[in-house]
């Protein structure tokens, strides 16, 4: 059975903490995601996302603090704008924009984090493995 591979960029203060909380709460979710911790979601560069796809990721998750909750005051607003533009461009590249996901998870939302990974895994299963480039 096809198992999608997901890279998750998690901000240190909220979403990484949410992922930890999912653990302490023993909430079970699929094992398809590998996390890369960054200090703030705004550190995630669209180049990282493309690099992830090129390196075999079927999906990329960016997770940060809720708007207004950013540990660095306003980083996540930038993340959101970058995400909206990048999604549009991915579509032009023929990559289903559902392969890139931005989610806000507070450090109290272990359940939400688990749910996001679960949903994303399911969705990627229906999308199938990522196809890039091709052609001669």
């Amino acid at each position: 059975m096809y198992e999608p591979k997901i890279i998750g960029f998690l901000c240190n203060w909220c979403s990484y903490a949410a992922a930890d909380l999912a653990g302490t709460s023993r909430i079970q979710y699929p094992s398809n995601m590998r996390a890369i911790r960054v200090m703030c979601s705004s550190r995630v560069d669209p180049e990282h996302v493309l690099r992830a796809f090129v390196n075999g990721a079927d999906g990329v998750l960016i997770a940060g603090c809720h708007p207004g909750d950013c540990h660095y005051i306003s980083g996540n607003y930038k993340t959101e704008r970058k995400y909206v533009l990048l999604r549009e461009m991915l579509e032009q590249f023929g990559i289903d924009p559902r392969r890139l996901r931005l989610e806000w998870c507070s450090s109290a939302e272990g359940g939400k984090f688990a749910q996001v990974v679960t949903e994303m895994t399911e969705e990627l299963k229906t999308l199938g493995p990522i196809e890039l480039g091709a052609g001669d």
Binding site: A19, A22, G23, T24, R26, Q28, S31
Partner: peptide, 21 residues
């Protein structure tokens, strides 16, 4: 790297997958 909170604790029913992760 976090192989407890974000691995063994959340993939308790799939030990092989947890090991691979």
């Amino acid at each position: 790297t976090n192989i407890r909170d974000q691995c063994s604790w959340v993939h308790m029913h799939t030990p092989e997958e947890a090991t691979e992760k």
